[in-house]
Amino acid sequence: MIEETALSGVVEITPRRFADARGHFSETYNADALAQHGINFQFSQDNQSYSQDIGTVRGLHFQAPPAAQAKLVRVIQGVIWDVAVDVRLGSPSFGQWVRVELTAEKGNQLLIPEGFLHGFVTRTPDCIVAYKCSATYAPATEGSVRFDDPDLAIDWGIKTDDAVLSDKDAIAPAFTDLASPFTYEPAS
């Protein structure tokens, strides 16, 4: 099942599960099935993170062209709130965000195209998050925005002081300092 979110291009995907006495099975990625819905990303890197504590925030991150990344995010263990922020210049939803709860139990995923900031917060301990990226990691192109930026006003469900952050995320710049490398291109 594919559901649109409030941000054009960001979609929630819930693969079908087949259950029996042993447990369940699902295809977590099928390029042909997604292409039937107009989703045509070629993924080149898989990442996985483990977060021990509730309230661990990873983000808000992006990679600029020519290494811009689309991401397909899913939870292997636990629960997260996954966030995408539109930073495509000229977009009618520029600066707006969407949050989707992803859980291992439900098996849902979030597809985040190029042109969006991405981040998540863990809602349970011992979360394992896996995501596909359409471009490999390119440190020279990476950028970030502070997760608790007041201009974005994202509801992370935690107090700012309780967030568990990396040193790099703790000093991420403000949204107003972002010189976005992305431009909105309306669908024709």
Rank of each mutant, 00 (worst) to 15 (best):
Q45C: 09
G78D: 10
N108V: 15
H61I: 14
W97E: 04
L72I: 00
E101N: 05
A84H: 01
I54C: 03
D53A: 15
H37N: 13
S93Q: 13
Q45L: 06
V79Y: 05
L102V: 07
D86R: 01
A64N: 14
F94M: 06
A84M: 08
D53H: 15
V73S: 01
R88F: 11
S26P: 00
H61M: 15
F43G: 02
D46K: 07
E101P: 05
Q48N: 00
R58Y: 13
G107Y: 10
I39S: 03
F94D: 02
V100P: 07
A33R: 13
Q48P: 00
R22I: 08
T28R: 10
V87T: 01
D32H: 10
R17G: 11
S51V: 08
Q77K: 08
I76N: 13
S91H: 13
R88C: 11
D32K: 06
Q63K: 05
R16L: 14
L111V: 02
R58A: 12
G55R: 11
A104G: 13
S49Y: 07
H24G: 08
Y29F: 15
R17D: 11
A68L: 02
E27D: 09
R22V: 10
D82K: 05
P15R: 14
R74N: 12
S93L: 04
E12C: 14
D82A: 01
L72P: 02
G78Q: 11
A21N: 04
R99M: 13
N30V: 05
A64G: 14
G38I: 01
R16H: 14
V83C: 15
V73I: 14
D20V: 03
Q77L: 06
D82N: 09
Q77H: 13
P92N: 09
R58Q: 14
Y50L: 09
V85N: 04
V75H: 08
K71A: 03
I39H: 03
R16K: 15
V57C: 13
H61C: 14
D53C: 09
N30Y: 06
T56F: 08
L60I: 15
I112Q: 06
G23F: 05
V11L: 09
A33S: 12
L89Q: 13
L111I: 04
Y50I: 08
I54L: 02
V85F: 06
T56G: 03
V98S: 03
D20P: 07
F94I: 03
S93K: 08
Q36V: 09
W97L: 05
A104T: 14
T103W: 09
P65E: 13
Q77R: 13
R17A: 15
G95C: 05
H37V: 01
G107K: 12
V98I: 08
H24D: 14
L110I: 15
V11A: 00
V79I: 08
Q52P: 02
A84Q: 07
F41H: 12
I54F: 00
F41W: 07
G38Q: 02
R22E: 10
L110Q: 09
N40Q: 06
V75L: 07
K71R: 00
I13Y: 03
R17N: 07
F25S: 04
